[in-house]
């Protein structure tokens, strides 16, 4: 017991050091087993510390939604990470590429909640609780060199959360119900990735899962929270100049300059 707690604290310190120095490192799990419970303990402790420093929790992000990614990582459920207010980039604000270690970007739909969603919510309750959906770009920033990590590693590292670029137009919640909607990402006018929402499975089921998980992590999904619902395509490295462009349902688009 004491041993596990000490491990968690050591991991937390090591992650904080990597972030501060903007230097990647190798997998913790390669040195000693890192169970998911321990990893979530590290993640929650780091989120609390940020909160205490005045950077409030703004919501959550989901990862590893597809069964194939889960198999690849040896897990049977998605992973969740914390979003903080300082991570949110408003329309028109630049993406501060120099703030990250090895940033990658991927397009995602997010939802914003008009009321709290507790554990064990039903589909109807979830849909009624969503105020609007929003096209976003998730800026991943793993501390693990080359994004080589285990599920425990990535959970401890807050699901590789770097920043979130917010779209400028609230979308009706029912965009979640049409799997034919596509998300597309273009970086610097060149590399692009694209996928259909259907590739993510059932978004409402993921919100229910996220609500349960957020409660188990000691906070719960709250009114005003932003929840990122995962990317239907692969992530692209963020260049140091140019622009990130995303397109989504109902003609929604997002353009962010890289600084």
């Amino acid at each position: 017991m004491t041993q596990a707690l000490m491990d968690a604290a050591a991991i937390q310190t090591a992650i904080a050091r990597c972030r501060a120095a903007r230097t990647p490192r190798g997998s913790f799990a390669a040195e000693a087993p890192l169970p998911l419970d321990t990893a979530y303990g590290v993640q929650v402790a780091m989120a609390r510390e940020r909160e205490v420093q005045g950077d409030a929790i703004a919501g959550y992000k989901l990862g590893l939604l597809s069964p194939s990614k889960q198999r690849q990582m040896g897990v049977s459920e998605p992973i969740i990470g914390h979003l903080h207010r300082s991570m949110l980039i408003n329309p028109g604000e630049g993406v501060p590429a120099g703030r990250f270690i090895q940033p990658r970007v991927e397009p995602e739909l997010a939802v914003v909640f008009a009321r709290d969603v507790g554990a064990g919510a039903r589909r109807g309750q979830v849909l009624a609780a969503i105020d609007f959906a929003l096209l976003t770009v998730d800026v991943l920033d793993s501390i693990y060199a080359g994004y080589r990590f285990t599920a425990g590693d990535v959970v401890a590292d807050n699901a590789s959360g770097g920043a979130v670029i917010l779209g400028g137009r609230p979308l009706p919640p029912d965009v979640l119900l049409d799997g034919s909607h596509r998300l597309r990402l273009t970086v610097d006018g060149q590399a692009w990735q694209e996928g259909a929402l259907a590739d993510l499975g059932d978004p409402v089921a993921w919100v229910i899962w996220a609500a349960d998980k957020a409660v188990s992590l000691g906070r719960g999904l709250r009114r005003g929270d932003l929840l990122l619902l995962g990317a239907p395509c692969a992530a692209v490295a963020l260049p140091t100049a140019g622009a990130v462009v995303a397109e989504g349902p109902l003609g929604a688009s997002l353009v962010a300059p890289i600084q």
Binding site: G54, D55, A56, A58, R85, S86, L88, N90, P91, A110, V112, A114, D131, F132, L134, L166, G168, P170, G224, L226
Partner: peptide
């Protein structure tokens, strides 16, 4: 504030 985003403004 602090930390208000456009998501909060929309809401």
């Amino acid at each position: 504030g602090p930390g208000v985003s456009v998501a909060d403004v929309f809401r």
